[in-house]
Simulated scan of single mutants.
Amino acid sequence: MTSATEAVAAKATQPKTKSKQNLGYWKRFGTFYIMMAPALIVLLMNNYLPMFGSLIAFKQIEYTSNSFIQSFLDSKWVGWDNFDYLFSTTDAWTITRNTLGYNAVFIILNLVIGVTLALLFNAMRSRRLAKLHQTTMFLPYFLSMVVIAYLVYAFLNPDIGIVNKVVLPWFGLNPIDWYTETKWWPYILPLVNTWKGIGYYAVIFLAAIIGIDNEYYEAATLDGASKWRQIWSITIPLIKPVIIILTLLQIGRIFYSDFGLFFQVTRNSGVLYDTTLVIDTYVYQGFIVSGDIGMSSAAGLYQAVVGFVLVFASNLIIRRFSKDDALF
C-alpha cells in the first residue's frame, strides 16, 4: 500500500519537476534564442520559403492574369515533362559536363595552390613583406566580376588587347580572336577564377598553419627532419581538417557556377557556349531569352538535388575513413 502511494506521489511531482526544468532552461538560454530569432527569420524567408518555387518545374506556366501567383495556380501540372525535354536535348550533357569539369578543376587548383602559397607565406622571414603579399593576393577577391571582365577584355581584346598587341608578337605568333575560339577557354576560365579567389583560400590555410604549435617543428628539427619532411609529416596532417571542410563546402557547390565568371568574362559569346555554358547561365538563358520558366526551374531543381546528394555522399565517404574530420 505504501509503495503504491509513493508511486502516485512521484507521478504527481514529475510534471512539476519537468516544468521547472523547462523554465530553468528558457531562463538560461532564452536570451540566445531571442538573439538568434532575426537571423533565423531571414534564413527562413530567403532560403526556405523560395523552395516552394520548385513546384514551377512540374508545371507549364501560362500567364492568364497579371498576378503571377494566380497564373501559377491556374497553370496545369505537367509532371516530369520539363525534365524529359531538358534531358532529351544535348544541352543537359553539355551544361553538366562543363559545370562539373570546371568546378573539379577549380577545387583542385584552390587546394593545391592555396596550400602551397600558405606554406610560402608562413616561411617568409619578413612579416611585413608576408602581410603585403597576402593583402595583394586577397585584393582580387573583393573585386566585382564586372570589373574583372573588363580587365580580362583589356588583355584579350582581338584588336587592341595586350596579348594580341604585345605578348604574341614577342613570340612571332599571329593574333587570336579569343572570343570566337572555344579551345582557349578551358584554360582561361580556371586561370581567372584562381587569380580572383586564391587569396581567400591561402589566408584560411595560413591561419590553420599558424595555429600549429611550434614544439612539433622544434622536436622534428632536433630529430634531423628536413623542411619537406616537416611539411608532409606535421603541417599537412594537422591542417587536414581544414582542407577537408573547405573541400566539402566546394563539393556542395560543385553544381553551382560563378555566374559572373561564365557570363561576364566570356561576354556571353554564343560561339563559346560549347565550352562555357553551365547550369547557371543556361537557366538564365532559358528564362530571359526563351521565356521557358518551367524548363529553367527544372534545370535549377536538378542542380540543387544533385548538389545536395553529392555533399551527403562526400561526407559519408569521409566518415568511413576519418569520422572526426567529417562535416556532420
Rank of each mutant, 00 (worst) to 15 (best):
L261Q: 01
G24R: 11
V146Q: 07
G300H: 07
F142T: 01
T276W: 00
D325E: 15
I107K: 07
L238M: 13
I198Q: 03
Y141Q: 10
T182C: 12
G197W: 14
L111I: 10
P237I: 06
I160T: 15
Y302T: 10
P38C: 00
M45K: 05
V115N: 04
F87G: 09
K131C: 09
D177S: 15
W77G: 15
L73K: 15
I210P: 04
V311H: 02
F171N: 03
F142R: 01
A202T: 14
K59P: 12
F29C: 13
V192T: 03
F312T: 11
A298T: 03
N98C: 03
W184G: 10
R229H: 13
V42C: 01
I188V: 09
S297W: 05
V166A: 09
L73F: 13
S75E: 03
A4T: 11
W26A: 12
Y179I: 01
Y48V: 09
F58M: 07
R253G: 15
I236W: 00
F72Q: 02
G294T: 05
F29G: 10
D159M: 13
A208L: 08
R229D: 10
L119G: 04
F263C: 01
M124L: 12
W170N: 11
A123T: 12
T247A: 02
A118T: 07
V105D: 02
D325K: 13
M45R: 08
I69T: 11
F312L: 14
F58K: 08
I56T: 09
A4K: 14
F142C: 03
Y141F: 11
T247D: 00
S65R: 03
V78S: 06
A57F: 09
T2H: 06
M1C: 10
S67Q: 06
A154T: 14
I254W: 05
N103T: 04
P38W: 03
F262E: 04
Q264I: 12
Y200G: 06
Y217M: 07
L249D: 08
V105G: 07
G161R: 10
I244F: 05
A202E: 05
Y48P: 09
N164E: 07
L100R: 05
F142Y: 00
E6N: 04
I236D: 01
K165S: 13
P38S: 02
N315I: 01
R127G: 01
G53A: 01
S19F: 12
Y302H: 08
G300Q: 08
Q250H: 13
G199M: 03
Y153C: 02
R267P: 11
F87Q: 07
G300M: 05
Y153Q: 04
A12Y: 11
L40K: 01
F263Y: 14
I243F: 00
R125Y: 10
F29W: 14
I160W: 12
T266D: 02
F263I: 06
F52C: 02
D213Y: 03
G197K: 14
Q134E: 08
S269I: 01
N110I: 12
A220D: 04
F171I: 09
L222D: 04
G30N: 07
T180V: 13
P15H: 06
K165V: 08
I279D: 10
A298V: 01
F155V: 05
